[in-house]
Design a protein around this nucleic acid. Structure first.
Length: 888
DNA sequence: GCGGACTGCTTACCT
DNA sequence: ACAGGTAAGCAGTCCGCG
C-alpha cells in the first residue's frame, strides 16, 4: 500500500547517514523578500486562472475585506483573491432606520457605516417583512468584542420591548460573504480580470443520469436533487499537500513542553508530502549519542546551526504547500512554532501562523489538523465505522493503515541525530499516510463536506456535524431570501414537547426496542427502513418552520402520538435539504460506489460522497433535539421519533397479519423468523404503499442467538461471518481472557450450519466455559489478561458524586502521578481481594486477584449466550468443580 | 450493625 | 456540543430487623 513501513526506518543499523549539508544562511531581509515575491505571485488578480478550486475564505483585518483561497491544479499552487465588490459586514434588525437614528450609542459607533431596508421572508410567521440592514466597517463592530458591539447596543435601547430584534449578527463574516455571493467551497472557478466565474465541471455525463433517476419527484424537490448532484458530481482535483511534525527539546521526561511558553528549542522538523518530498530539518547541538537509525533513501536531511534559521526555512517550505496537515498541530506543533518564533525575535508578520483560541491556521496555506478531524465522533463512527477507538496518531494509524506499533519511546532529547530524524519523520509519514489512505479519502471527505456545508476546509475539518448542518441551512436561507430566526424566537413558539422519555432527564420519547424472543432461530431476515429518520423528515415535511406552523388550516394535520401538526401549504427547508440528500445517497451514491462499471477513480469519490452523506444524514434528526443547535426545535426531533415508532409498530402488526413471526426489532429494523419470499415482498410493498417508506432486506442470517436482553444478540451469516451486538464478551472494557474465551465460543457458533449441529456445538461451548473457569481458578491467566480497560470520562477531581472503581484505582497513585492523568486516559485495573478491591494493573500481583469476582464475570459474559442455548452456568461450573475435586 | 431493595452514577454499547 | 434506549457494575442511601 505505502512504499515505506516504519520497520524500514529503523533496524538495519550499519548503513551510513547522508553527508550533512548546510544550506546557506540568508539574512532576514533576503528571506522576507523571498516570501514577499512568493506572495505577489500568488495573488489571483496578477495571474488569471483557467481553473481554480475555492477551498477557503477568511477575513483580512488589514485590508478590511474577505479573502478567498483558490487551489489551481495546473501548477498545484494556492492563490489569494481579495474582495473587490465592496461587500461589508452587517446584521439585520426589526427597527426602522428612523428609530435607529434615535439610538445615540449606535449613531456614535465608529464602526457604523449605514442603514438599508431589505425585504425578507420571516419563516416563523410565513410572511414577507421589511427589515433594516445595519452595515458596518468591520466584523468586530457587529459582534465579537466584549463590549460596544452593534448587536448588543440595539436590544439595550429598549430592554422592555421584546419586539426589538436583531438577526444574523452571530455569523462569521467570511461565512456571510460566501452565502451572500453564493460561492461554493470545493467547486471550480475561473478567475479572469479579477472576476470569479463559476465553472461547469462534471464527471462524464453522470449528471443527466442522476436527473433521469429522479424524474418522478415534484419540481421543487427535483431542483434540490439537481443542485446537490451538480455539487457532488463535480470531480475533485489532485491536491498537493505536506504533513508536518516537529520535535522539541525537553528537560524533563514525560512532560510535554508547553506551547504557550515555548521555552525549549525546536530540534527537528520533518515533512512528508504528496510530491514525494521527505525532508528533515535538524538542529546541530553537539549531540554525542551515537545510536543509528535508517532513513528512507529519498529523505533529505538538512542541518542548521541556528534554530532561527531552521524556523525560517520551515516557514518558507510551509508557505509553498497549498495544504499542510498535522496531527494535533492546532494545540501543539503550530502553536509551539508561533510562540517559539516570537521568543526568537521574529516579527509578527514574519510568522505565517495565526493563532485562534482553539485553532492554529496558516495564513498562506490551508492547515488541516487531522487530530481534530479524527476526533469528531460522527467521522469516527459513520465515516470510519469505529475502526479506530482511541485518537492518538499511533492508534489511528495502526487501525486504519494496519501498521504495527513502534515502541521507541525514549526522551527525544537523548536520541542521536539519526534516531531523532527517523522518529520525527515517522510521525509526519504516518500523518501523511492517513491523508493518502484509500486514494486520499480523508481529503475527499473534507471536500465533500465543504461542498454540502458551504464551509471553508479549515472549518469543516475542525467543527462538528451540528455546525456543518447549521452552515448548510444558513446558506439556503440566504439563497432564498429567508430571514434566519434566532434560537429564542423558535423556542418561544416551539419549545414544547408532547411525550415523556423512558430515560429520566431526557426531553421526549425516542425509539422503540422490541422485547426479543429468546432462543436460536434459523433463517432470520432483517428488514429495515433505509435512512428512517431522514425519510420521515422528507415525507412528513418536517422542519423547524413547518412543525407547529402559523396556519390555522394545518392544525388538523397531526403527527401520530403527539399534539404537533405539520404545514400543508409549504415544503419545509430542512425537509427539502435532508430529503434530497437522503434520496441521493440511497438511490444513487450507495449503489454507484460499488458499481464495477464505474471507473475506479470515480468510484472512490462516490464512496467518499456516500460516507459523507451518511455522516450528515445520521445527525440530521439529532441536531434539532440538541439545545446548543442554532435551530434547536424539540418538536421536530420529537415528531421524527414519533413517526419512527409509528412506522415500526405498523410494520410489525402487518408482518403478524401476514403470518410472519417477528422475533426482534430496534428503531428501524424488524427481525423476521423464516419468512417466505412472498411474505417479504408483500410486507415491503405494503410499507411503500401505506407508509410511503422504503423497507429493504438489510441482512439474511443463517441463524440468530437472542437472550432476553435488548440490543444484545449474535447473528451468523451463511458465510460463517458473525455479527456480535452489545454482548459483554465484545466490549472494550472486558478483560482479555474473557474476550478470548468468548471469541472461541463465537468461532464454534460460526461453524454451526444446521439445527442438528447444535448438539455438538453446545458441548464444545460448555467445554470452553469450563476451561475458562478452571484456568482462572488455577491462576493460569496473566495479570494483563485479567485487566479491565476503562476510559476515564472526565478529569479525576470531577468525580464528586461517586467513586467508580477505575477512579478508586487511580486515587492510589501519588498526587503528581494523578495530575498527569486527564480525561480520555485509559485505565487498566484488576479486582483484588482486599480493601479498595481494585488495583492498577501496574501495582497488582497475581496472588491478590479476587477469583470469585472474576467467576461472576465469566458468568455474566457467557450467560448472555447460554440463556439462549438453554445451558445453565451453574451446571457447567458444578461439573467443573466436581472434576477438579476428583483430580485432586 | 447488617443486608436487601432501591436509586443514581458511570461506561460502553445499539439504532 | 446530533438524539434516546439498554445493559452491567458499583456507590450510596434508606429501611427493617426484637
Amino acid at each position: 500500500m505505502q512504499e515505506k513501513t516504519l520497520e524500514d526506518y529503523l533496524g538495519k543499523p550499519e548503513e551510513k547517514p547522508q553527508a550533512p549539508e548546510t544550506p546557506k544562511t540568508g539574512d532576514m531581509e533576503a528571506w522576507r523578500e523571498k516570501i514577499r515575491k512568493h506572495m505577489a505571485e500568488r495573488l489571483a488578480p496578477a495571474s488569471d486562472l483557467a481553473e481554480a478550486y475555492l477551498l477557503s475564505a477568511t477575513y483580512d483585518g488589514d485590508k478590511r475585506c474577505a479573502v478567498l483561497k483558490f487551489y489551481s491544479p495546473s501548477d498545484e499552487q494556492l492563490y489569494f483573491w481579495y474582495d473587490n465588490t465592496g461587500h461589508k459586514p452587517y446584521c439585520l434588525t426589526s427597527l426602522r432606520p428612523e428609530e435607529l437614528k434615535n439610538i445615540p450609542e449606535l449613531m456614535a459607533h465608529e464602526g457604523l457605516e449605514g442603514f438599508e431596508q431589505v425585504e425578507k421572508l420571516d419563516p416563523l410567521i410565513d410572511r414577507r417583512v421589511v427589515v433594516t440592514r445595519i452595515v458596518a466597517r468591520d466584523p468586530l463592530a457587529i459582534g465579537g468584542r466584549p463590549s460596544g458591539c452593534i448587536r448588543d447596543i440595539i436590544p439595550r435601547w429598549k430592554p422592555e420591548d421584546a419586539s426589538v430584534k436583531v438577526w444574523e449578527a452571530d455569523i462569521k463574516y467570511y461565512e456571510n460573504y460566501l452565502y451572500d455571493r453564493n460561492l461554493e467551497v470545493g467547486m471550480p472557478y475561473a478567475i479572469r480580470e479579477e472576476e470569479i466565474i463559476p465553472l461547469e465541471s462534471r464527471l462524464s455525463s453522470s449528471l443527466s443520469e442522476v436527473e433521469a433517476a429522479f424524474a418522478g419527484e415534484s419540481p421543487e424537490f427535483f431542483e434540490y436533487i439537481k443542485n446537490w448532484a451538480r455539487l457532488l458530481e463535480c470531480p475533485v482535483p489532485k491536491l498537493r499537500y505536506a504533513a508536518l511534525d516537529i520535535e522539541v527539546e525537553s528537560p524533563t521526561l514525560d512532560r510535554v513542553p508547553s506551547p504557550q511558553e515555548a521555552l525549549y528549542r525546536v530540534i527537528c522538523a520533518s515533512l512528508v508530502a504528496s510530491d514525494s518530498v521527505k525532508r528533515v530539518l535538524l538542529l546541530r547541538r553537539g549531540v554525542v549519542s551515537e545510536g543509528s537509525a535508517e532513513l528512507p533513501s529519498e529523505a533529505r536531511v538538512e542541518w542548521y546551526d541556528d534554530e532561527k534559521e531552521l524556523l525560517r526555512q520551515l516557514f518558507e517550505i510551509l508557505t509553498d504547500y497549498p495544504i499542510v496537515l498535522t496531527f494535533n498541530g492546532d494545540d501543539f506543533d503550530l502553536r509551539y512554532l508561533h510562540h517559539r518564533a516570537e521568543r526568537l525575535g521574529f516579527a509578527r508578520e514574519d510568522i505565517p501562523i495565526e493563532l485562534g483560541r482553539e485553532s492554529a491556521l496558516l495564513r498562506l496555506s490551508i492547515h488541516l489538523d487531522l487530530y481534530r478531524f479524527f476526533f469528531n465522533r460522527s467521522i469516527q463512527v459513520y465515516a470510519f465505522d469505529q475502526k479506530y477507538r482511541e485518537i492518538t496518531l499511533q492508534e489511528v494509524a495502526s487501525s486504519l493503515l494496519g501498521l504495527g506499533k513502534l515502541g521507541l519511546d525514549r526522551d527525544v532529547s537523548r536520541l542521536s541525530y539519526m534516531e531523532l530524524a527517523a522518529y520525527c519523520l515517522r510521525d509526519s509519514e504516518l500523518t501523511y499516510q492517513l491523508a493518502a489512505l484509500d486514494d486520499n479519502l480523508v481529503l475527499k471527505l473534507i471536500i465533500a463536506l465543504s461542498r454540502i456545508a458551504k464551509m471553508p476546509l479549515e472549518d469543516v475539518s475542525r467543527q462538528g456535524v451540528s455546525n456543518w448542518i447549521r452552515s448548510m441551512v444558513y446558506s439556503e436561507h440566504r439563497r432564498r431570501g429567508i430571514l434566519i430566526p434566532t434560537s429564542k424566537e423558535i423556542l418561544a413558539e416551539k419549545g414544547v414537547t408532547a411525550t415523556h422519555s423512558i430515560i429520566k432527564g431526557k426531553k421526549y420519547r425516542g425509539a422503540v426496542v422490541i422485547e426479543p424472543r429468546a432462543g436460536v432461530n434459523f433463517n432470520v431476515i432483517v428488514l429495515d427502513f433505509s435512512s428512517l429518520y431522514p425519510s420521515i423528515i422528507k415525507r412528513w415535511n418536517l422542519s423547524y418552520e413547518t412543525v407547529r406552523c402559523p396556519h390555522e388550516e394545518c392544525k388538523r394535520n397531526l403527527i401520530p402520538e403527539t399534539t404537533h401538526w405539520v404545514c400543508t401549504k409549504k415544503r419545509g427547508l430542512t425537509s427539502l435539504l435532508i430529503g434530497s440528500l437522503r434520496d441521493l445517497r440511497v438511490r444513487w451514491y450507495k449503489s454507484k460506489a460499488k458499481d464495477p462499471s464505474v471507473p475506479p477513480e470515480v468510484r472512490s469519490w462516490y464512496s467518499a460522497v456516500q460516507r459523507t452523506l451518511k455522516v450528515i444524514l445520521n445527525a440530521a434528526y439529532g441536531v434539532f433535539g440538541a439545545e446548543h443547535f442554532v435551530l434547536y426545535c424539540p418538536p421536530v426531533a420529537e415528531a421524527t421519533a414519533s413517526v419512527g415508532r409509528y412506522a415500526i409498530q405498523e410494520v410489525i402488526e402487518k408482518a403478524q397479519d401476514l403470518g410472519i413471526e417477528v422475533i426482534y426489532g430496534d428503531t428501524d429494523s424488524v427481525f423476521l423468523k423464516n419468512p417466505s419470499e412472498a411474505q417479504i415482498r408483500q410486507l415491503i410493498e405494503w410499507s411503500k404503499d401505506n407508509l410511503g417508506m422504503d423497507l429493504d432486506v438489510d441482512k439474511v442470517y443463517r441463524y440468530t442467538v437472542f437472550s432476553t436482553r435488548k440490543k444484545n444478540y449474535i447473528g451468523v451469516y451463511p458465510t460463517g461471518n458473525v455479527d456480535i451486538k452489545g454482548l459483554t464478551g465484545k466490549k472494550r472494557n472486558t478483560p482479555e481472557f474473557l474476550k478470548k474465551a468468548f471469541a472461541d465460543m463465537v468461532n464454534i457458533l460460526s461453524q454451526v450450519e444446521t439445527e442438528d449441529a447444535f448438539f455438538n456445538a453446545k458441548e464444545k461451548i460448555k467445554g470452553i466455559v469450563k476451561e475458562c473457569y478452571s484456568r482462572l481458578k488455577s491462576k493460569e491467566y496473566s495479570l494483563e489478561d485479567l485487566a479491565f480497560t476503562v476510559v476515564l470520562g472526565k478529569s479525576l477531581e470531577d468525580y464528586e458524586k461517586t467513586t467508580p472503581q477505575h477512579v478508586k484505582a487511580l486515587r492510589e497513585l501519588s498526587k503528581e502521578d494523578q495530575e498527569k492523568i486527564g480525561a480520555g486516559s485509559v485505565v487498566r485495573y484488576v479486582k483484588v481481594r482486599k480493601d479498595p478491591w481494585v488495583k492498577l494493573l501496574s501495582q497488582a500481583s497475581l496472588e491478590e486477584i479476587d477469583v470469585n469476582k472474576y467467576v461472576e464475570h465469566i458468568q455474566t459474559t457467557f450467560e448472555q449466550v447460554l440463556d439462549a442455548l438453554d445451558i445453565s452456568f451453574e451446571e457447567i461450573i458444578g461439573i467443573s468443580k466436581l472434576e477438579s475435586f476428583l483430580n485432586f
